[in-house]
């Protein structure tokens, strides 16, 4: 306990700054997931509080992406339950997760390759669009008005991410770093209450990483969006996270503030490869 207090104190100010971190909005209880006998996650429990930046770290193959996939319903765990906004269920389904305000990005960029940046980000608004097929076919009145109204929102996202100059470019032609940014834009366009980011900085240079960190912090700060982040760059994780959960071989080996986690012998062992 003393160590913890010291650690927090030593840092001077916590990364949370003056942000309000609220009650638990997502609670994962005893999640186990396996694929045809191969265990990906074993009995994992942790929670996410409103407004915090929660990181998941761990070596390759630790089950980090699987964890995100459980949260928004792409994978269905065999055991455990997911409690989101007080509603307890066995598993999520992706559509429902989206409707309840969970958006995400993927480890391997999952943009729609054949579409422009603008159209990609517009897809993020799809749940908020109400006009139907026949109105679209006519493209008159309500459909046109709706299109313009959402275009305005999307342009705000484009301004926020500073990608104005590429809005009409097909995403396939963009460099990797920009694609990652567009993917973040698509997630933001949905105005999510919770954002799941799967290695948003993988393969980026220092400058791009700084930009991305800034965007993440700004999103969290300006919109109060809760963020669950998977990232390999320890410097970034320790800098921007409020709390960190550590996975190894599908098991949780550490959970707490960055300082607590850094001091955890199991975590150190996992990262340095010491057997335990």
């Amino acid at each position: 306990m003393i160590v913890n207090e010291l650690a927090v104190g030593a840092q001077g100010q916590s990364p949370a700054g003056g942000r309000p971190i609220g009650e638990v909005i997502l609670d994962l209880q005893n999640i186990s997931l396996s694929f045809g006998g191969v265990k990906a996650l074993t009995d994992i429990s942790f929670n996410v509080r409103k407004g915090e930046i929660r990181s998941i770290i761990g070596p390759n193959g630790a089950g980090k992406s699987s964890m995100l996939n459980v949260i928004n319903g792409v994978y269905h765990p065999q055991q455990g339950s997911v409690i989101f906004h007080g509603e307890k269920r066995r598993d999520m389904d992706p559509h429902k997760a989206a409707a309840q305000g969970i958006a995400r990005t993927f480890q391997n960029i999952a943009l729609f390759k054949g579409m422009s940046v603008l159209d990609n980000i517009m897809t993020g608004r799809i749940l908020k669009m109400k006009t139907n097929l026949l109105q679209h076919a006519l493209f008159w009145g309500a459909a046109q008005r709706e299109e313009i109204e959402h275009r305005k929102k999307v342009e705000e996202v484009i301004d926020f991410l500073e990608i104005q100059s590429i809005r009409k470019t097909p995403v396939g032609r963009l460099p990797y770093g920009l694609q990652k940014r567009v993917e973040l834009g698509r997630a933001l366009a949905a105005e999510p209450s919770m954002l799941l980011l799967d290695e948003p900085m993988a393969g980026m240079n220092v400058e791009e990483k700084q930009d991305m960190s800034r965007f993440i912090l700004d999103v969290n700060d300006q919109f109060g969006t809760t963020i669950v982040l998977i990232e390999h760059d320890m410097g970034v994780v320790m800098d921007i996270s409020d709390r960190v959960v550590v996975l190894d071989y599908g098991k949780k080996i550490g959970d707490g503030t960055p300082e607590e986690v850094m001091a955890n012998p199991d975590v150190i062992a996992a990262y340095l490869g010491t057997s335990h």
């Binding site: 694929f35 045809g36 992406s65 996939n69 792409v74 993927f106 480890q107 999952a110």
Partner: peptide, 10 residues
């Protein structure tokens, strides 16, 4: 009949 179950990795 004999194909393997396909899992979408994301």
């Amino acid at each position: 009949l004999f194909g393997e179950k396909h899992i979408d990795r994301v």
